[in-house]
């Protein structure tokens, strides 16, 4: 394990419902700095919702989420939670990168434009400096020769790599990946996973990855978490969990995807 024990992400009793449907029913999860956690589970198990709650794209119904010791999305006073100001929520979000299943690149901006948008307009970095850093990031994800292309001229794998660079541009301390390869043609999955692997290995980025890529989980993840029905059913070292799942629901799920 690369984790050094210091907790970066802490989820405490997270509940989330959409109308009558309770999607998260009490999630407790700690992720240490530098740790890579893979979240698996059948569709509808609440994996994506959990990620969206972590950077407060969804409000919580109860529970608390801390990143780097700071409560995300709320301020606590006398044990009561109050919605945080929009500016504070935005500031905390900028320290948490998220990569979406459908890339969500800004189609009216070039690859470089996508990457420098937030550094220039949120962080107020001088454009020159942001562009320099942006080019370096695009190089890091293997997109140095596509800097001036618009997203619709890029393949899915290329778009997703630009999206990773865009998230990294705000120098987040935590990266969330929401099924980053699910929308890709099979032959393009590898290039995105390679970028994620080097991110984990070379920069010791703390990562929470929702994926069905068991190979990636085995190779890179420190811990695997299996979710079903809005709760964490089982967690452990990936190899152990995949070879000998303890819970019947985990066994059933793994037998279907392996």
């Amino acid at each position: 394990m690369t984790a050094n024990g210091e907790t970066l992400l802490r989820c405490e009793g997270v509940h989330k419902r959409f109308g009558k449907l309770e999607v998260l029913r009490g999630i407790d999860l700690d992720v240490a700095r530098g740790e890579v956690v893979v979240v698996l589970g059948p569709s509808g198990s609440g994996k994506s919702t959990l990620l969206r709650c972590i950077n407060h794209l969804e409000k919580l119904d109860s529970g608390r989420i801390y990143v780097g010791g700071e409560l995300v999305g709320y301020v606590e006073r006398d044990g009561k939670l109050r919605e945080d100001s929009e500016r504070e929520v935005a500031r905390k979000r900028s320290g948490i990168g998220i990569v979406f299943q459908r890339f969500n690149l800004f189609p009216h901006l070039t690859a470089l434009g996508n990457v420098i948008e937030a550094p220039v307009h949120v962080k107020k970095l001088p454009r020159k400096q942001a562009e320099e850093a942006g080019r370096a990031l695009l190089k890091q994800v293997g997109m140095a020769d596509k800097v001036d292309e618009y997203p619709n001229r890029l393949s899915g794998g290329q778009q997703q790599r630009v999206a990773i660079a865009r998230a990294l541009a705000m120098q987040p301390r935590l990266m969330l990946f929401d099924e980053p390869t699910s929308a890709l043609d099979p032959e393009l999955v590898g290039e995105v996973l390679d970028v994620m692997k080097s991110l984990a290995r070379e920069t010791q980025m703390t990562m929470v990855v929702v994926t069905h890529e068991i190979g990636f989980a085995r190779e890179v993840a420190d811990r695997a978490v299996f979710m079903d029905g809005g709760v964490i059913v089982e967690e452990g070292v990936p190899a152990d969990m995949f070879n000998a799942p303890k819970e019947p629901r985990t066994q059933l799920f793994l037998s279907r995807i392996l």
Binding site: R52, N55, L57, E86, R87, A90, R91, R93, S94, I96, G97, I98, F100, R102, N104, L105, F106, E117, A118, H121, V122, K123, A163, R166, A167, A169, M170
Partner: peptide, 20 residues
Amino acid sequence: GQMDAAKSVGMTQMQAMRRI
């Protein structure tokens, strides 16, 4: 997803509206 992506990189609602 465009609003989500804009917010995720730290934009406020108004910034995301205006720029994205």
